[in-house]
Design a binder for these strands. Sequence first.
DNA 1: GATTAGCAATCGAAACAAAAGAGTGCTAAA
DNA 2: TTTAGCACTCTTTTGTTTCGATTGCTAATC
Lengths: 341, 341
Amino acid sequence: MEDNSLDNRKKKVLQAIVEEYVNTAEPVSSTALTEHEELNYSSATIRNEMADLEKAGFLEKTHTSSGRIPSEKGYRYYVDELLKDDNISLEEIKYISEKLETKVNEIEELTKITTTTISEITHYTTVAIGPEKEAQLIEEMKFVLLGPRMLMAIILTNNGMIKETIIKFEEDITDKQVETIGYMFNQKLRGQPLAVIDVPLEEYLINEMKYSVKVIKPIIEQIKKAIDQDRQIYLEGANKSFDLPEFNSLEVAKNFVNVIDEKDLVADMLNTGFAEDINVYIGEENEKQELKDFSIVTFKHRVGDKDLGTIGIIGPKRMNYSKVISVMKYINNKLNNKNIE
Amino acid sequence: MEDNSLDNRKKKVLQAIVEEYVNTAEPVSSTALTEHEELNYSSATIRNEMADLEKAGFLEKTHTSSGRIPSEKGYRYYVDELLKDDNISLEEIKYISEKLETKVNEIEELTKITTTTISEITHYTTVAIGPEKEAQLIEEMKFVLLGPRMLMAIILTNNGMIKETIIKFEEDITDKQVETIGYMFNQKLRGQPLAVIDVPLEEYLINEMKYSVKVIKPIIEQIKKAIDQDRQIYLEGANKSFDLPEFNSLEVAKNFVNVIDEKDLVADMLNTGFAEDINVYIGEENEKQELKDFSIVTFKHRVGDKDLGTIGIIGPKRMNYSKVISVMKYINNKLNNKNIE
DNA sequence: GATTAGCAATCGAAACAAAAGAGTGCTAAA
DNA sequence: TTTAGCACTCTTTTGTTTCGATTGCTAATC
């Protein structure tokens, strides 16, 4: 294993290069760095440091005589060791607070608001997805007849979400039947994760409880379907990415549209391992090949102990990690203390 | 008013140019046209015809010595007079039929399926929006208590749509109250358009019917909000547009992403005047300036007499109008005869 | 030993020029 | 009315030159 420790001046140089490059999107030259107040050396000295940093893999050149840009390893070191997470202004704090205090009737609205706010503050494309069905426990189920052959099933979960779906039958259903179904489902499912609504349950109800296939099968099938496809994805500020110089490359732009157009890919992207509440994936660190030109910052989104899913920012590798992570940390904190009844 | 009648040969030339340009995206030269079987003339003759058509405003040149491309007037003439609407293969018919016969529990699913299918067959970006609230009549309303201060309102409309929303109160609500509310709302609103749920109704219920503000106000407000924002927009195949040569221009690409990212704009776009079931807007014919580089084909989407909203294709002016309109007509016909219970 | 000044070398970007190719418009002939 | 023929126009491509930014290295300096 190579030695990745850097002395103080090298750290400063690396940090300055990342921050400068994030701002300008242009390779950073040794002369430009001498203007940094903490780097009171001649350009030649900086050049030597840069050469060392390149040899160690933290920097790259676009061609022999160009300035340097951070490598993925460079970004990674920056994110892990150098980044400041207080890169958020008073105005931004105020704006975010106001947004998050909006009264919401449905908990999903809060996700929407948060997603939009993050996109507005960071100027990056932001996506969100609801919690996984394994993580949501059924608190109560209600069944409402909407017509002789049409039933609405409503599921209230422990994280405050409400899912409803319509089930159509091929024969009439009576009020009495609905009542029994309600009683039975609640008995069986209260406290269970949503994922439990699946074929084994269907078989149990039909075989053990002797319930009519014609009634049970459509209910289970439709609820399962609704739960699966109900993991709706919000997408905010897709156009914002197009103002970035990276998107002058048609290939990158096309790649980006392909990614955000592919809902499954976005879902996967938001669901990759969660060591921390906030996770950063830089370029090739992303599991999906399509994302190798981008960086993703994901963020477990909860209010108190209620898991509301994951919000993710997708931007260029030259992302303003400091701003993004500062904003996420602030929101994270704010939401944890939020009072939702 | 200028004379826009064209003799037969000119029509053939114009049609050939449109179709050739739609295929190749390259200006069409006189020599290329001589290879069309119906145009057995020398390139010089064709050149003369092209010069006439240009003078009359149907064609344009990109520069002095280039081939011709259709002008917007040219496309318009083509769409109105020359286009064949049987540009659909047996395989496509089969594919569409199968898709449209999928059993759906919720009527919105049918819109999704149709939208996806159109995008798959035409290879253009396709959007859909539900019917306007003026066009939907309330058939029945149900209210279900989900908690002491949480009520679900369900509205069934005459076009088979089901809208539900959650209302939260600041004080407890009793079963008795819910029952009265249900009775009252149904009495008052059955047969009325969704648009009726608004402030005047709120005032009437509070002043005339002496109902508690604390109960009525949140209900009306939340239902209104839900109806307004529930006009969800489906978007399919945004990435498909990026394969078109038009999108090699960054400006066009950016413009496109801006358009589809702006939900209100898409909604407006789908709601502009409806002379016919299928409407074509070419370039500058679009009311919105942002759409001047694109053509939109919209299509009133109904099953029997049930209005399901509007589906629209957005593509380059060099759109394959013939294919798009053939597909829409076929689907239109197919849906009209569809049996949904 | 660390730092710096100085300078040749390298490469990209921009400007310019020349050549090739595609297509038209027009004239005069069929 | 149609067509052959040809000069003319404009784009695209390719090559060349110049300019400027930046580096790496060497030798001098602190």
